[in-house]
Design a binder for these strands. Structure first.
Lengths: 233, 233, 233, 233
DNA sequence: AATGAATGAGTCTTCATTCAT
DNA sequence: TATGAATGAAGACTCATTCAT
């Protein structure tokens, strides 16, 4: 919650940037557009954000904050077993990507940067302005936090029997995360296939989640009514 | 295999472009760089490719061609059941993304374009040069072809019992494709988590594939030795 | 008279552009030349004028403004009959074309554009940047204004008896305008004919004006000493 | 009449160039367009014409040849007095400009070049390729020839009494020429004025010619039925 | 805090012309 | 004569960023 005038204006710029990045993309969005839509001068934008990359990193940070709060929210909710948590997380995550294209794009982009960041050679190719941004280090941490929470959910599920105990929590959670990321990216192509392939966006999501659950579910559930259905009661 | 001089030079430019796009990225790569590294004049580049976007689409086409040939190769290989095929496909796909970062990036990028292309509003935001490229329509088809092949693999698996028959082939295949896409994207973050989360790249891949198989495998295999293992004989 | 700093600079650029367009022509004049000679950066030129065509239209506008002020000035001068006004207008117009080659060229060019603009097919051939210029519509009006003033002069002359009353004011004025335009264009060739054709620029102008007057003059003047003729003694 | 294969192809290129210059303008017409539309290779164009300017000069030459033949034709026609000849010439000239926009534009352009050519300073600004063209000198002569013929027509008229004898043939003819040139240029604007100024293209031409005749006609015709006026009844 | 004029490096793209074949 | 691949100079235009006020 921004309180000071400064924080308010900073947030305003950020919101405008998100809107524009979403509509036109990062490259096509000019700093002047941001300023104009925010009703301020071009110069002032640079008072609040060091440069365009910094602004983008700030947007990315906001995106990750949002994502992390989703992770947190679900993790601290009571009365759910691990699989249920994961299911809810995946559902919420998908909604998040759908409702905040830009956020998701920023997160994916940051993951790409992390990839370069881990490679001595590719590291050189990263725009120095990105590395200089005060948000960069924080982002590395937040991403990590999300991972940790997700892994704890899986661990929980393995303990409460909703998830197969022989799985390895870390690998499993990252695999789930991968599924969600890929899901978003494939939304476009799936939406396009209208001719021979009978697959509709509205069908994919439940099927996708069901598959994910099948992948995880513990042996206990084989005889009991399915966790997934249970969550619908 | 290019034969005519024209095709040879065209391929030369393409290869150089791939190299540069991989190293420096699309935006940071100047047409002049491409020309210089190819040992030709700037103008000639425009003789073979209408513009930078067209060149990029050509690169994307090459990437998709490569990908499709992987799909095809595995699909026509004999003596495998459906799950085995999918497993091999996923393995090969992952290798493909690892060895051809640029190719994969181009494919992911194209999927993003498809997403915009399906949305009346976002469609406006696509660079017209991309839509004008002679490769654009072909790319839509090739992507579709890959999807079809993958779906056939799953269908095969459902028939031969290696994949649960109650699954829906289309949804299932796209879910698997999503997993692979996300896997690549998460490689970066996973590689970064060195501190608390004990997950190493070398561990992730087999675990990832195992999970994918668990998600799919048919009831028959419950009593029999696992398909996956079978393939190791 | 420009007042604000912005108007001053805008005028500066315009003046430089006129100088350069006059000397080197529109095509041969680079925006960088304009900037350099104006002592500003290339970018600033684009801050004041959307593009080169817009700058050219601005120059054209200035030319037409100048021309219109000549029309106006003469029209509101007292103590002249219509023929005298037309005579003065033609004289002033010729001086104008001579002293401002560029202005006249811009005006002639614009007339050519108007021609294309009136033809559904040729209209397509007009550089869109020209049509987009904020000056374009204004120019159409200013041209029209000049025509109206000239026609009023002829009308006046027809009423005061200095111009034959049976003439049609519109046709007559446009015919005079045509004469002037052609006069300027033929200055070049006339200046060149040095060998056999004995025609010197200094002789042409008075003869030209006399002919124009002969074409127009009313019956009254046949008996009275003509203001116009008087000036030729 | 082109006979040899060489002349035939040369004429073909010329015709195509005229068509394209007419439609798209000189600058917008690419040598490749010309070649393509002529069904030959780009290189071959340069075999027949030294360069683009040379091609343009060749077009100009063709235009002037055509114009001169109009002058000649009318001049050698029998049974006309001088004024009639001039009237026919003006009529034919106007038709010529209307039917051959490009030709007329080329001629006007050449007149502009002549103007620069006569000025020591402006001369520098002429594209050297134009001066180098083999057609350039010929064009100067042809223009001159046209002038001479026209002057002879006026002289004739002065002798046969159809044109006022006190006029000076040279000045008079060039004034008429000026009228015609201006007429063409003003066609565009005149076509545009639809609102308040009641002037229609179809009305202008006869009025224009009538005025021209009034300007010239000898005293004799005042009492006799005039050929020209007769045509207006 | 705020403005917006000013900068200038950066690049794509065009096209007349040449030349090896 | 004829081709068309190859050249490369030329120039318009953009936009992130700065700075005087």
């Amino acid at each position: 919650m921004p309180t000071s005038a400064r924080e308010k204006k900073s947030k305003l710029i950020l919101d405008v940037a998100i809107k524009l990045f979403t509509t036109k993309g990062f490259d096509a969005t000019k700093m002047e557009d941001v300023a104009k839509m925010a009703g301020i001068s071009k110069g002032l934008t640079y008072f609040y954000f060091k440069n365009k990359e910094d602004l983008y990193m700030a947007v990315t940070k906001k995106a990750y904050d949002e994502l992390k709060s989703i992770f947190r929210e679900i993790f601290k909710s009571k009365g759910k077993n691990g699989l249920q948590m994961i299911t809810d997380l995946v559902t919420a995550y998908i909604d998040f990507t759908q409702e905040n294209r830009m956020y998701n794009a920023a997160i994916l982009n940051f993951m790409g940067i992390m990839q370069q960041y881990n490679d001595e050679v590719l590291k050189e190719g990263i725009d120095p302005l990105i590395l200089e941004s005060e948000h960069f280090q924080k982002l590395l941490e937040i991403h990590h936090d999300c991972g940790k929470i997700g892994i704890q959910m899986v661990t929980l599920g393995m303990r409460d029997g909703s998830i197969r105990p022989e799985l390895q929590a870390e690998l499993t959670f990252y695999t789930i995360w991968a599924m969600v990321i890929g899901y978003e990216r494939l939304m476009g192509p799936v939406g396009y296939e209208g001719k021979e392939i009978k697959i509709h966006l509205e069908n994919w999501k439940p099927g996708f989640i069901k598959l994910m659950q099948d992948m995880l579910k513990g042996t206990i559930q084989a005889t009991k009514p399915q966790v997934v259905q249970a969550s619908l009661f």
